[in-house]
């Protein structure tokens, strides 16, 4: 018999611990598949910020560095400079990258460092219980925007990829989504492209992934996917903003 679907070697036998319907497991599995397909398991390093994915070192089999909230971009730059052989990627949420770590996330692109940035955007601070994030949609209710996000007081949702794409130092910038199988396949292609770029010395790549959060959104997983397709994509358009 021929195997048509296997577990990636990037995971051990522990369960992820993510909530049912969470997107992190899908994204980290896709990264694992890329690792296997590109033959970089000896070189790959994930740099984790602080968020729901911080404890994910438990179930991954390759090298992990866990750094302060928002700082994976700077740590990735330093690591790549000290050891250019590494394939270094940052793995952050939208709050880690777009709020507390805004500077450290944008500057690797300013410098054009040859690293890969994966950002999981679920429009909220999920780990801390659902507070307003820089990516929270206008009118979206969170624990710190109980009447819905007032964009007159808190600004419009932050579009990190579009901003980074405008910098001369970035080479490949895309936004993808997990809301159905077709889009998950596209997301995988974008993530693989971002790693291939680093392997080939092309330069800085960023992929933002729109991802569901059933626990904080207080929705069934299927409804979360519908919300992304219906509402979230309207604010955060999918596509490749830079590079092929």
């Amino acid at each position: 018999m021929k195997a048509v679907y296997e577990k990636t070697t990037a995971f051990n036998d522990l369960v992820t611990g993510y909530c049912p319907g969470c997107g992190h497991g899908i994204v980290q599995r896709m990264i694992g598949e890329c690792m296997d397909e590109l033959g970089i398991s000896d070189r790959l390093v994930a740099i984790l910020g602080v968020g729901c994915s911080s404890p994910s070192w438990r179930f991954m089999t390759y090298d992990i560095l866990s750094v302060p909230h928002g700082r994976p971009g700077a740590a990735a730059s330093g690591m790549k400079k000290c050891d250019p052989n590494k394939i270094v990627y940052t793995y952050q949420g939208d709050g880690d990258s777009g709020s507390i770590g805004f500077s450290e996330t944008v500057y690797p692109a300013v410098r054009g460092d040859n690293i890969t940035s994966i950002i999981v955007n679920n429009t909220v601070y999920a780990m801390t219980g659902g507070q307003m994030a820089p990516t929270t949609l206008a009118g979206q209710v969170t624990t710190t925007s109980p009447k819905g996000r007032d964009v007159n007081a808190t600004g419009q949702p932050l579009h990190l990829p579009e901003l980074v794409a405008s910098l001369p130092g970035s080479r490949y910038v895309a936004r993808v989504s997990l809301h159905d199988t077709a889009h998950i396949r596209k997301a995988k292609q974008a993530i693989k492209q971002a790693f291939e770029n680093q392997i080939n010395g092309v330069g800085y790549s960023m992929v933002e992934v729109l991802s569901p959060c059933p626990s904080i959104w207080r929705m069934k997983p299927v409804d979360c996917m519908e919300r992304i397709a219906r509402e979230v994509i309207r604010e955060f358009p999918l596509g490749t903003f830079k590079g092929a």
């Binding site: 560095l65 750094v67 330093g78 400079k81 050891d83 450290e104």
Partner: peptide, 9 residues
Amino acid sequence: NMMFGGAAT
């Protein structure tokens, strides 16, 4: 944090 990243290697 760059130093941290380098030191980790």
